[in-house]
Design a protein around this nucleic acid. Structure first.
Lengths: 353, 353
DNA sequence: CTGAAAGCGCTTACAG
DNA sequence: CTGAAAGCGCTTACAG
């Protein structure tokens, strides 16, 4: 009957079905699947034909259970909707896929409470490792308590609160925030700028602190003064940056340039400047951080620091895979370089005052 | 000894460890974990204490194997780095997480060959269902062959090539592309625009065809002519759109407005117009599609169609979960409405010629 | 209310 | 070269 050859829609094909179908043991089928050289050529051919015929799909979960292995990695991000992290995730997934791992996704929306829940849930799926870009204010002790000692953790982009940094028991991949901001500041200084503000970001975030430190470093090395009202906090997005622009000009002396926390903030600041009749790129110099796609296309195009999020994603995956190969090696802190991308029109010399 | 109470770092805690630790059977521990009312209150308390004490982590893969269930959903996207899909993924993950599912991520980079490989790999992890935004040119027959009949499939955003659309054996969630483009075109017509182009996108993509059809519909309903050089193809990104801008003006009559394939294209077109000395919002009207974050912040702000990708992600997840509850129901094609967002300054009436 | 036993789909020594 | 048997960590009738 035609029905006979149709696979039953209600049950998946297993090794046992294949074994029965070509009269060998499950063990032999397993050896074929795993490419063992032990199997006789003809037996192998018969089994492979049967696998095709029945449309067999390997059950990796069962194999992982038996072998006590795992073929997944958990990727937990604070904000997947942010293009920077979306690019990062793409890079991670690319590299993991190439190594035979599958990505378990989790998104925390910058809430450390949700981060706990997401981590706990993903851990039940037994990932071989975790890549985590922590939510703001995420505490080292709590994360460590839920992740435990069994699952290697790679931190990206931010440190955890309260971590004894030098000897933390996890790997880290960080951007060279301080050097990046220093390069941007030095670039402005070389153009003759003297009154340079540091604009945007939350003081609480470690990346903001590091970037600010790089700015201070460059200013001090050049012997330039820093006014208190030249440091403006704002949420790291365009809208808030545009709204905070005015704060730069409340007191004298007004800055003529700003090193911004990131590109989003820089683009928002430019918008705010336009609205006040100050033309960025002519009356005011601006730099960003990240080199998002729009940085090259804004008016004027933006001088910024390229952090290459997709490459960072691949790098994070490689570092974690390396850790899986050698669980005993001492944890490492890797600092990814960032590159100054000069788009001259966003950075004029100071206007003759 | 202190060492005794330290969990062995080389083996994970299992049900059997807990059972041994408080002198009950594994069955009882399992019942506690699953919240069974059968268990005696005191027994439950003892077990729960022991679970905490040993830092037990549930092995969901083992449970899924035994129960023949699955707690994951595969999400396969053609381009996660695109903000539209990043938002979509966020919405999917939100809704799935809430329902106790975990997201298995796959990214195809618009290659249908990689799509096959990614689907095959994810299927081995036995997802309960699949949400797929197909790569361009992805063939229905091939996808169906690798996905099989066991795993419910939900298509998002695009149709598969060669699908007998009305009775395809999968669910679909599509945007109302045609109506959206019609609304945009009608809006321009109501402002008095008559020479309206359709700009950007690939003719091969179903969404582009649908949007173009909506444009044609509105033009014909208003009795307005359409010139052949008013339809310009370009890749759906800013850079290519800016480069193609000139093609609108090769022949007379030149258009005075353009309905764009999407926001990226619209922003690129505006850039191209500026470079030619045509000021969008004054000399030329432009509309987009998607309502990405930048649409509100461009100069001028862009009239566009809001497709709410995050909400679409949640909706896609809900539809798939619904399918899991009722596998027999006939497949559905859901069309999500899109909303015209009018930002007047991008759409002037035609200049007095 | 609790335990002994079987089994989910796979893998891996171990015999032969 | 192939098969019988045990076991990965869980769940679920079934007895008691």
């Amino acid at each position: 009957m035609a029905t006979e050859s149709t696979p039953h829609a209600n049950r998946k094909i297993t090794l046992a079905d294949i074994a029965a179908g070509c009269d060998v043991s499950r063990a032999t089928v397993s050896l074929v699947l795993r490419g063992s050289p032990l199997v006789n050529k003809l037996t192998r051919a018969r089994v492979e034909e049967e696998l095709r015929r029945q449309g067999y799909v390997y059950n990796r979960a069962a194999a992982n259970l038996r072998r006590r292995t795992s073929s997944s990695i958990a990727l937990v991000l604070n904000d997947l909707a942010n293009p920077f992290f979306a690019e990062f995730a793409t890079g991670v997934d690319e590299a993991l896929g190439g190594a035979g791992y599958v990505t378990l996704l989790g998104s925390t929306g910058e809430s450390s409470a949700r981060e706990q829940a997401v981590l706990a849930s993903l851990l039940e799926h037994d990932p071989a490792g975790i890549i985590l870009s922590p939510a703001e204010g995420s505490a080292a002790a709590r994360v460590l308590a839920t992740v435990g000692m069994h699952t290697p953790l790679l931190l990206f982009n931010r440190e955890l609160d309260g971590a004894a940094s030098p000897d933390a028991p996890w790997d880290r991949l960080m951007l060279d925030n301080q050097r990046g901001a220093r390069l941007a500041t030095e670039h402005l200084i070389a153009l003759g700028q003297k009154r340079i503000a540091f604009f945007g970001g939350h003081q609480g975030s470690s990346s903001c602190q590091q970037r600010h430190a790089g700015y201070v470093e460059a200013m001090q090395a050049a012997g330039l003064p820093i006014e208190p009202h030249w440091r403006i906090e704002c949420a790291p997005n365009r809208v808030d940056a545009a709204a905070q622009c005015g704060a730069l000009f409340f007191d004298a002396p007004a800055p003529t340039a700003a090193v911004c926390y990131n590109d989003a903030v820089a683009l928002g600041l430019m918008l705010g400047l336009y609205q006040r009749g100050v033309q960025p790129g002519r009356d005011f110099a601006v730099t960003g951080f990240d080199d998002i796609a729009e940085a090259a296309l804004s008016a004027p195009p933006l001088t910024t620091l390229a952090s290459k999020p997709r490459a960072r994603g691949r790098q994070a995956a490689e570092l974690l895979l390396q850790r899986l190969r050698d669980p005993q090696a001492t944890p490492e802190r890797t600092v990814a370089p960032v590159q100054l991308v000069i788009r001259a029109s966003s950075c004029p010399p100071p206007a003759a005052a």
